[in-house]
Design a protein around this nucleic acid. Structure first.
Length: 494
RNA sequence: GCCCUGUUCGUCUAGCGGCCCAGGACGCGGCCCUCUCAAGGCCGAAACACGAGUUCGAGUCUCGUACGGGGCACCA
């Protein structure tokens, strides 16, 4: 049977980095087995529904490259893929459970429940419900119903015995049934809780594998009970370990936006990674390394590269925090692997956002030397300032353009020669520029080494202490602008 | 409080009884290269939570302790 696995976010916010990891692992597993990846929206909590959240989540998944085969936007043979549109189905099966003695109607009001909670807690019981409607006789139930009293449907949890949860990641986990009270399956609003809805949906959507956060493990016995009560074949479950804050204290998923934790700027929404200049393949790489390892020493990879070796069973069951210290490095490694055009294209929106008018041709010249320098796409703004600023805007003094191996006279001589070269040369390409300037440099310094001259020349051309190498920088500026800047420099020595 | 679960360098991890006086990566320190900054190369410091067992032999199995995490909603 082919693998059918669903990713089922709630539209209560944006795609969280922890959710992205669950989605990535799920997606890779599906790809590995040539199955279908299904996107389903679990919106049964109308109180927490956030307008636009579904679109945001899908946009983030697309950005990461996690495409789905069936979903609310593209449909599919098992739709609809939004739970509120399937309400009748849940109602039908909740009633089936009642009719078959596996669930019952509970008429407890909010006040009644509040009282119960206080009483039970006094006894150290935090279940919040004492099962008072579990064994009410049929006539009484009918009467309350006839009075129009609102009710919920609760599952009749076995009072004793044990439920064994089988999990792909943790193996068998045994729970005492007496630990649980009778969970609500249908709310009084007529919508189901997650517990009922996911089981019904996963059955009718013919889901074979369920991946979800570890926070669900505690309610998994209820879910296993439901599969058994319905007599349906149960899919395989995999509970992903939670992601912790970098400090190791508390789970990250409680956070809804970036924050500072110790020395780390922690990004939690997927689109925050995009804004900060991280690229999708790097973000995937970053989260794939948390709770999972390639098994050998492979650290830098694309999702496609590791699909053949990915297995849910290899996911580590221990909770972990994201290694933020690695994020910039991973991103830099992937930037190095981009080709020039691709990188330039990725950089353009960031440079434009900084107010620069981007000349793609000039940008391409400097791409090879930028690749090894960029950690994030946002770094380009500072590095390439010289390329987009006015020639006249560079403010330097002669003092800054001399060196103890390059006294003022020699410096001036060198800059004049460079200017003459730029103005008269037939070919203005990287090769000619570098050989010519190299030899000028060697002839003017006291040690005969071009280094000090080239360093100062670079400063003169860019006005930046940190910048791309001088030859590429000049070529990117072009002949005109290079000459203009050199003239200014020579002028400083007058 | 009760239930579940986890614990290897600062961090992410490899390890599934002998191959481990524990390997990789980031970060950190040093050196080399070098027109700055990077990148790259080389070197270095740095860990099996603790205690009992089982075994010829334990990071690897068992139990306990400590600490961490998750759950105990008409939220997902």
């Amino acid at each position: 049977m082919s693998v059918r696995l669903r990713f089922a976010p709630s539209p209560t916010g944006y795609l969280h980095i922890g959710g992205a990891r669950t989605a990535l692992f799920s997606w890779m597993f599906v790809k590995r087995h040539g199955g279908q990846f299904i996107l389903r929206i679990e919106d049964t909590d109308q109180k927490r529904f956030v307008e636009g959240a579904v679109e945001e989540i899908m946009a983030s998944m697309r950005w990461l490259g996690l495409d789905w085969d069936e979903g609310p936007d593209i449909g599919g043979p098992y739709g609809p893929y939004v739970q509120t549109e399937r309400a009748a189905l849940y109602q039908e099966w909740a009633n089936w459970l009642v009719d078959n003695g596996r669930a019952y109607k509970c008429f407890a009001t909010a006040e009644e429940l509040a009282e119960m909670r206080v009483e039970l807690e006094a006894k150290g019981d935090r279940s919040g419900y004492d099962r008072r409607y579990r064994d009410m006789d049929a006539a009484q139930v009918a009467e309350l119903e006839a009075q129009g009293k609102p009710y919920v449907i609760r599952y009749k949890m076995p009072l004793d015995g044990v439920t064994v949860v089988e999990d792909l990641i943790r193996g068998e986990v045994v729970f005492e049934n007496s630990q649980f009270t009778d969970a609500v399956l249908m709310k009084s609003t007529g919508l189901p809780t997650y517990h009922l809805a996911h089981v019904v949906d996963d059955h009718f959507m013919e889901i074979t594998h369920i991946t979800r956060g570890d926070e669900w493990l505690s309610s998994a016995p209820l879910h296993f009970q439901l599969w058994q009560a319905f007599g349906w074949e149960r899919p395989l479950y995999a509970h992903m370990p939670v992601i912790l804050n970098p400090s190791g204290k508390g789970k990250l998923s409680k956070r809804t936006q970036s924050f500072q934790d110790g020395q780390w700027q922690v990004l939690v929404k997927v689109d925050e990674y995009e804004e900060q200049g991280y690229i999708p393949v790097a973000v995937n790489n970053f989260i794939a390394n948390v709770g999972w390892s390639s098994g050998d020493d492979l650290e830098i990879f694309t999702p496609e590269e590791i699909i053949p070796r990915f297995d849910l069973a290899d996911v580590n069951s221990a909770p972990t925090s994201l290694p933020y210290a690695k994020l910039d490095w991973i991103n830099g490694q992937h930037i190095q692997q981009m080709d020039d055009v691709e990188l330039a294209k990725a950089l353009k929106p960031f440079l434009e956002a900084a107010g620069y008018e981007v000349n793609v041709e000039a940008l391409l010249i400097v791409m090879p030397s930028m690749k090894v320098r960029l950690k994030r796409l946002t770094d380009a703004e500072e590095f390439l300032q010289f390329l987009f600023s006015d020639d006249a805007a560079i403010e330097l003094t002669a003092d800054q353009l001399v060196h103890n191996q390059l006294p003022a006279d020699a410096a001036r001589n060198g800059y004049e020669q460079a200017l003459a070269f730029v103005q008269t040369t037939d070919t203005f390409d990287l090769d000619t520029i570098s050989t010519t300037l190299m030899s000028i440099g060697e002839s003017v310094t006291t040690t005969g080494k071009a280094g000090p001259f080239l360093g100062k020349l670079r400063l003169a051309m860019t006005g930046q202490n940190v910048s791309p190498p001088v030859f590429e920088s000049m070529l990117a500026l072009g002949r005109e602008r290079t000459a203009a800047r050199l003239k200014q420099v020579v002028g400083l020595f007058a």
